[in-house]
Simulated scan of single mutants.
Amino acid sequence: MDSVRAVLSAVREAGVGGVGGEVPLEDVRAALTQLARVREDVDVWELALIEAAQARGASLSGIAADLGMTTRQSAESRKLSHA
């Protein structure tokens, strides 16, 4: 994640268009690839934690609130999308 943060910081500093190409395309693409892997990990972690919370008696409404969602259907949908 540190390399993603470093590339993002450099891109912000150079501007999105990259004045003079200070941030090589290869670095930006590598950061995007890393970010996709992190997103996959987070999805797996989230599903495991939702299931653990449910196994311990948490309601989907409560889990939704923990995830910053407003409805139990949102949490259920999130769970199903990770399964």
Rank of each mutant, 00 (worst) to 15 (best):
V11N: 12
V7Y: 07
D41F: 15
S9K: 11
A55D: 03
V7M: 06
D66V: 10
L60K: 00
D43R: 15
L32S: 05
G18M: 05
V23T: 13
M1C: 06
E76N: 05
A10M: 06
A53P: 00
S59D: 05
A30Y: 07
V11L: 13
R39D: 10
V28R: 07
D41L: 15
E76G: 13
W45G: 01
A10S: 14
E40G: 06
V23A: 09
G15V: 05
V11C: 11
P24H: 08
R78H: 06
E13G: 02
T70C: 00
E26K: 12
V42Q: 08
K79P: 00
V28S: 09
V38H: 14
S9N: 12
L25Q: 08
V16D: 13
L80R: 11
L25C: 10
A36V: 09
L49E: 09
G21N: 14
D27A: 12
L47V: 14
L32T: 03
G18F: 04
G62L: 04
A52P: 00
E40C: 03
S81L: 05
V7T: 14
A65F: 02
A64H: 02
S61D: 07
A53G: 04
E40F: 10
S3V: 05
A64V: 04
P24E: 15
T71Q: 03
G15P: 09
K79V: 05
A55I: 01
T33Q: 09
R12W: 09
V23E: 13
S59I: 06
S77M: 05
T70N: 03
V11S: 10
G68N: 03
L8H: 07
M1V: 11
L8A: 13
E13T: 09
V19E: 15
S61I: 03
S74R: 01
V28W: 05
E76C: 02
G17S: 13
D66H: 05
V44L: 13
E13D: 14
S74I: 01
A30N: 09
A30E: 11
S74G: 15
D2L: 02
G68W: 00
R39T: 07
K79H: 08
R5Y: 05
L80T: 09
L25M: 11
